[in-house]
């Protein structure tokens, strides 16, 4: 390494540094993302109180040095509960997005590469899913499959799958007869191999943007479902259910019960949205709106 390396030798990394420097908001988003991951991994180990421990003598206390976010109606520490909930909320959304990523990729790649009746059937099917207001469909699915956390994940995955499938289908479709794909086929690669190792990786950058934007949406969705009483059950700490429980106290002025978990939820969604926008700038600067 020289003191002033040529920009050309650095490629992607230099571009990344350039984008991060030009757009400090993205850097902030990465920082917040790291913080959320930290909370999810180490949260239960670092919080000052047991999130489930009740203390009737200290119920409904406003925020103080001792209890940063105050205490709830049975004396549980809201701060500890909010931090511990990070893991569950992130887990639900990451699992759901991962599922829809995999399923959407397979469906979209197959439909985009081979086309024909497979493609039409898939498109009809996706149109039908998109014909439902998505949150309402998620409610229906959870109601039908049963009221558990796994089913929240499945429902969120199902309503997200069309976005991935359509994206991959479009990306694969425009490249299926591209020069490099034909060259790979002439070299004796099977269709499946060409699709998986030569064409599909091209769809990954826009997919990553979609993943990031989608994570925020998945968290909102999961929290919304638990807000109306689906999936997570009390006393498990989870942001949506904490806001729902705190809502009963807002009209009597105990605002901290609902506001802090809500703010935390907002922060998480905001982080993923910023991250998605930032990633989009890195992947495709033209798409900025």
């Amino acid at each position: 390494m020289t003191d002033a390396p040529l920009p050309r030798t650095q490629g992607t990394w230099a571009h990344l540094v350039y984008v991060l420097r030009a757009n400090p908001v993205t850097l902030l988003a990465f920082g917040m993302f790291a913080f959320l991951i930290f909370c999810a991994v180490f949260g239960p180990a670092v919080v000052p109180y047991d999130p489930l421990a009740t203390n009737a003598a200290k119920s409904l206390q406003p925020p103080s040095w001792e209890h940063w976010f105050g205490t709830d109606q049975i004396g549980r520490d809201v701060f500890s509960r909010v931090i511990v909930a990070t893991r569950l909320d992130l887990m639900i959304s990451v699992a759901a997005v991962a599922l829809s990523f995999v399923v959407g990729s397979i469906l979209g790649a197959v439909a985009g590469y081979w086309g024909g009746w497979l493609d039409s059937v898939l498109n009809r099917f996706l149109d039908t899913i998109m014909a439902f207001p998505l949150f309402v469909l998620a409610m229906g699915i959870v109601a039908a499959l049963g009221n558990t956390i796994e089913n929240i994940i499945y429902a969120t995955a199902i309503i997200n799958t069309p976005f991935y499938a359509r994206l991959v289908r479009a990306e694969v479709n425009i490249r299926r007869n591209a020069g490099f794909a034909q060259a790979a086929k002439l070299c004796g690669n099977s269709d499946l191999r060409v699709l998986a190792f030569h064409i599909f990786p091209n769809a990954l950058p826009p997919m990553m943007v979609q993943v990031s934007l989608n994570l925020g949406w998945a968290i909102l969705n999961a929290a919304g479902l638990s807000f109306i009483g689906l999936g997570v059950r009390p006393p498990t700490p989870e942001w949506g259910i904490m806001v729902a429980e705190g809502a009963n106290f807002i009209v009597s002025g105990e605002w901290w019960l609902a506001v802090f978990p809500g703010l935390w939820l907002m922060l998480a969604v905001f982080t993923f949205n910023l991250l998605g926008d930032g990633l989009r700038d890195i992947v495709d600067p033209r798409k900025r709106t």
């Binding site: 919304g224 807000f227 949506g240 806001v243 729902a244 809500g262 969604v269």
Partner: peptide, 10 residues
């Protein structure tokens, strides 16, 4: 887009 509706309402 980051605002959870139920939270804004509250």
């Amino acid at each position: 887009v980051s605002l959870p509706t139920f939270f804004t309402g509250i």
